[in-house]
Design a protein around this nucleic acid. Structure first.
Length: 478
RNA sequence: GGCCCCGUGGUCAAGCGGUCUAAGACACCGCCCUUUCACGGCGGUAACAGGAGUUCGAGUCUCCUCGGGGUCACCA
């Protein structure tokens, strides 16, 4: 049984990079009928953020990535919150000490700093010097009994090679001489993050460890721990970060690194997930639209990229527009409604709004700006009446409005059909290009060069009174 | 700096020794459609980081150089 885990720190936000890691981790397990476990890594209490765990729950649920075990639903390997596991790490470290694979260290920070400084003076790379490895058991006991603070360090062999095999990157080997004796248990009795990870992954029976690339170089060292315990090693799959550009990761200071940011900007969650899934993975064929279920069927590590991908809002926006266009009209309206309200057009004909807006909306937040002219006629210049392609200028526009206004005033019914028939009928009767007649009408109605929809839709949305008022205003400008 | 990893168009990417005078998508440009804009249709510009090898043959394998990232904490 494949068991993978997503182990975020509760920061209050869901970084897109984390989201993608969670996604791949989830998909990998689900593709193989395995289990996806959620573990909260909150050992750093100083970074505690109120409600942050809920953000994680809500985001995953919102997207549909349901976990099989986790803090809220429990499971056979709990607890699933690291701070609640505190007590279980130290005995493991002590077990290692007994086996000679770890040792107590009494060096103080000051002493370490001094030695570090000294070695950097000499231009050397600092590595813990195993100073306390040679303390006799008696002395260790004496100092512990005396209440002296201590840490427990991993005892890395001086020679030989540590290595592991990554599914994506292949065999990664590091010389043990390069490795530092890392701290396993801190002076406060708490485990270091890396040690806790090894213990948690093993005790939670995680079979496939999927995590960020930044652990690639240190994983051989963790593997030494598995060997020291005699535990079976997990399969490792390291994943690339999402970049802002060639040299920087997507980060919070760019203001666009979080999933929440994109929801606020009017992106659909399905589009975000779809786009993010494709950043660093491809299905091997030319498909690029996937629902979560389709991803579950299709996802495969062989399609994962080894080099980081640069995030391109352009393509996300395009993809979002594709999702928007595929929405059922009711769905489109449901998503657009808050923006209609914001723009003051919520009382207008929703069918027409949907018809003119849906093909033009890339992200929902664009709507208010696009329909602003419906609630307030912009202050516009008569130059707008001149358009070469439509063959209009102020004289032609004046002429057109002079016969359009009376005709529309006389319209018995102010419907789109009636407007359509009347307007185009007049163009035909006068052997005038549709565009020539419609241009001044639309400009008068909208006071804007570019509008969603044409003259008929706008007139219908505006209604008889407002339309005629605007047409007369337009005529007056000429 | 040591060690580890990565390197195909502006971006995402296919390619796993010959079918590469290198696919597809986004963006960009042009044309068509058209009631403005958008949608849609058609077409175009644009890449194997560089150099040595190996081989009959290299984007694909090896090495070096360059570029980029990661990592070297009692942070996670």
């Amino acid at each position: 049984m494949v068991r993978t885990r997503f182990a975020p720190s509760p920061t209050g936000y869901m970084h897109l990079g984390n989201l993608r890691s969670a996604l791949y981790t989830y998909l990998y397990a689900k593709k193989q009928g395995g289990q996806f476990i959620l573990r909260i890594e909150d050992t750093d209490q100083s970074r505690y953020v109120e409600g942050a765990v809920d953000v994680i729950y809500n985001t995953l649920r919102d997207i549909g990535m349901l976990w099989d075990e986790g803090p809220d639903i429990g499971g056979a390997y709990g607890p699933y919150v690291q701070s609640e596991r505190k007590a279980m790490y130290k005995p493991y470290a002590e077990q290692l000490v007994k086996a000679g694979k770890a040792y107590y260290c009494f060096c103080t920070n000051e002493e370490l700093d001094a030695r570090r400084e000294e070695s950097s003076q000499k231009g050397e790379v600092w590595k813990y010097d195993k100073h306390c490895l040679h303390l006799s058991p008696e002395e260790v006991q004496k100092r512990i009994a005396a209440g002296e603070p201590y840490v427990i360090r991993q005892n890395v062999p001086l020679t030989g090679e540590a290595s592991f095999d990554d599914v994506l990157y292949g065999h990664i080997a590091v010389d043990c001489a390069e490795l530092d004796d890392m701290v396993l248990i801190k002076a406060d009795g708490m485990p270091t993050y890396n040690f806790a990870n090894v213990i948690d992954d093993h005790t939670m029976a995680i079979t496939h460890v999927m995590r960020g690339n930044e652990y690639l170089a240190s994983t051989p060292k963790y593997n030494l721990l598995y060997e020291a315990f005699g535990w079976e090693k997990p399969v490792y799959i390291h994943m690339t970060p999402i970049m802002r550009d060639q040299t920087h990761k997507l980060s919070k200071r760019d203001g666009d690194a979080y999933y929440e940011d994109y929801l606020k900007k009017g992106y659909l969650r399905e589009a975000i997930v779809n786009y993010v899934a494709l950043l660093g993975w491809n299905p091997g064929d030319e498909r690029e639209f996937f629902t979560l279920d389709e991803l579950k069927e299709t996802f495969d590590v062989t399609g994962m990229s080894k080099s980081p991908a640069i995030f391109d809002v352009n393509k996300l926006t395009w993809m979002n527009a594709e999702y928007v266009r595929k929405l059922a009209p009711e769905e489109f309206t449901r998503h657009a409604l808050p923006y209609y309200e914001q723009a003051g057009v919520a009382g207008m004909d929703k069918d027409i709004l949907c018809r003119i807006l849906q093909p033009r909306t890339e992200i929902f937040t664009q709507i208010p700006e696009v329909v602003d002219f419906l609630t307030a006629l912009p202050d516009y210049d008569a130059e707008l009446f001149t358009n070469k392609k439509s063959k209009t200028d102020s004289a032609v526009s004046a002429e057109v409005l002079d016969f359009v206004i009376p005709a529309l005033t006389a319209l018995p019914e102010w419907t789109e059909e009636a407007l359509h028939e009347t307007l185009l009928g007049m163009a035909e009767a006068r052997e005038m290009k549709n565009g020539t007649l419609l241009w001044p009408v639309r400009i008068s109605l909208a006071g804007k060069l570019v509008t969603p929809g044409g003259a008929m839709e706008i007139a219908t949305l505006l209604g008889r009174e407002e339309s005629l008022r605007r047409l007369n205003l337009g005529r007056a400008k000429l």
